[in-house]
């Protein structure tokens, strides 16, 4: 059978689906991150982590084209979202879905209508066909029984799952998740992790997740990059378990071991100091 090279359902392909090149994040003189270079492979769950205020969410917003970075490029399936305009930009935007930190569901629409919205905008399917596709998405995240509920009528965890279903409406190759576990109880958070893993393994969708929830990172991440506020760059990259046990950078070990008493040091200044 003919295989399409860009098939979203081929998790073993080593193709780099997102390439971030020399990206600077910030505006004016307020540079949060500079000269970032990394890539995300097709099908993997890629986690961006770092302490509060290190620019994780800003980086994500640059990667999805919400902010224009001062310098650098973000190639999504080979096309630069920073410079793309018009139809080309629209085409790139349909290749990925985004789940925002608070879910960002449209409050005046039911869950089903939230998911259907992008199908209505981008396809010529009939209403029944769009509804069936939307129901399949809601079923994937376990929210089919709540399809006629308004976002305000369901819990925070359910809102995030519904937001994932909405982000998947057009079967994108990539899903960006901003702090999916933030504000959720451990059980709901673990359920959300299972949803992410199941979608990743079954559909081969690439995930880019911004989080600093350790259990979630260890549970879902194939690979992580860790950002640092001091150096304004990436200080670690790899599998989280490996970084926790083997990283030579104290700050990385401290982060993964959730240790407030460990010596705090950045790659430049390795002088141990005590953080309180």
């Amino acid at each position: 059978m003919a295989q399409t090279p860009v098939s979203a359902t081929n998790p073993t392909s080593p193709e780099e689906i997102i390439q971030v090149k020399n990206l600077t994040v910030g505006y004016g003189s307020n540079i949060v991150l500079k000269d970032l270079n990394f890539s995300v492979k097709r099908g993997e769950i890629f986690v961006i982590l770092g302490g509060s205020g290190c620019g994780k969410s800003s980086l994500l917003k640059n990667m999805i084209g919400l902010y224009d970075p001062p310098t650098g490029a973000v190639l999504i399936e080979g096309k630069d979202i920073v410079t793309a305009e018009g139809a080309e930009r629209q085409e790139i935007l349909t290749r990925f879905g985004v789940m925002y930190q608070q879910g960002a569901l449209f409050g005046s629409m039911t869950l089903l209508e939230n998911v259907r919205l992008f199908l209505e905008e981008y396809t010529d399917l009939t209403p029944d066909e769009m509804s069936l596709i939307s129901r399949c998405k809601l079923d994937l995240v376990g929210l089919l029984p709540f399809e006629s509920f308004m976002p305000s009528e369901i819990s925070g965890g359910m809102q995030k799952r519904a937001a994932i279903a909405r982000a998947m409406a057009l079967d994108p190759d990539i899903l960006f998740l901003d702090e999916p576990s933030a504000g959720l109880d451990p059980i709901t958070s673990a359920e959300l992790d299972q949803t992410i893993l199941s979608i990743s393994r079954n559909l081969g969708i690439t995930f880019v997740v911004v989080t600093h929830e350790l259990p979630s990172i260890f549970s879902i991440a194939d690979r992580v990059i860790m950002l640092d506020k001091e150096t304004k760059g990436i200080i670690a990259e790899g599998k989280p378990q490996w970084l926790r046990d083997n990283s030579e950078i104290p700050l990385v070990r401290q982060f993964f071991n959730r240790d407030a008493h460990a010596p705090v040091a950045t790659p430049e200044s390795q002088t141990p100091s005590t953080a309180h």
Binding site: M1, T4, E129, L132, D171, L203
Partner: peptide, 16 residues
């Protein structure tokens, strides 16, 4: 046999 790609919408079509 001749299908090169099937995404969630394609699956929904088969389910229908």
């Amino acid at each position: 046999a001749q299908v090169s790609y099937l995404d969630g919408a394609g699956i929904a079509f088969l389910i229908d």
